[in-house]
Amino acid sequence: MSALPALGTPMPERTKSRLLELVKRHGPLTAQDLAQRLEVSVPAARRHLGDLQEQELIVCRTERPGGRGRPQHVFTLSERGEAAFPKTYSTLCVDVLRHIESLFGEGAVLRVLDARNVELAGRLRDDLAAAGSLGERVQTLAARLDEQGFDTTVEQDGDVWYLTERNCPNLTVARQYPQLCESELGLYLQVLDVPVQRDRRIACGQAACRYRIG
């Protein structure tokens, strides 16, 4: 029989998960607060906090308790840490699009997404303006998509470039509203200003979305 962990020394990954939950529910918290709640030593709590900071899941800031007294370091969730907890954004988005379609007709959803594309295209064009060749523009676009969770790769085949998205952060919405995928394709056409075709789509059950560019 394998030996069980000694009492008061939880397994590291489980401790990190509990630490994130505590910061989420009760934060901001000090290392001392967390050590007491987790029933571990303060140095052990600091080690876990250091790991979570390296993973960009929590951030540290200095504040005075109650607005006065001696400053202390407290820990809160980063945006990435917040994203690790379940959200209902996709459900809300689907509900909003459904009501738009019900109130204004089938074409209204695409018109709303196209209007959003105008704003997105303006931001992306500023980034792409500094890129010279088509390959540089595709690489810059891929970097911006990665920031949004698309997990992209870029490959070249002669004069043609392939942009592959291995994750769809909007999959729940895209499966119910293919207009979202149409809008994405339209956005890439606008900002790259060359022919763009999609030959794979995650929302259709394939492993990735892939765009042929050029």
Rank of each mutant, 00 (worst) to 15 (best):
C181F: 00
Q148T: 08
E82I: 01
E101G: 09
E79F: 06
E184L: 11
L29M: 02
G186C: 08
A130L: 13
P12G: 06
L19W: 02
L19D: 05
P169I: 06
P12S: 10
R70G: 01
T153D: 11
V191L: 04
L34N: 05
R198P: 02
E119S: 10
D199S: 07
R68W: 15
N167W: 10
A115D: 13
F104P: 06
A131S: 03
R61E: 15
P5N: 03
D146S: 08
M11D: 15
R18D: 09
S78V: 04
D146L: 01
S2L: 10
P169A: 07
R175N: 02
L189A: 09
Y177N: 05
L52Q: 04
H48M: 09
A130P: 11
T152W: 04
V191G: 05
E54A: 14
Q72V: 10
A44C: 15
P195Y: 07
V154E: 10
G214P: 03
R200M: 13
S90C: 10
L110Y: 06
D114S: 13
T140N: 08
E119K: 11
L22D: 07
G50E: 12
T152P: 03
I100D: 01
A6S: 12
V112A: 09
V196Y: 02
E54S: 13
A142L: 06
L180T: 15
A115G: 11
A35L: 00
I58H: 00
R201T: 14
M1S: 13
L189N: 09
G107Q: 07
E79T: 05
E119H: 11
L192R: 05
L4R: 12
D126F: 13
F104W: 13
P12C: 07
L57V: 07
D95E: 14
A203R: 08
V173Q: 02
E182Q: 09
G214A: 03
Y89N: 13
C204I: 11
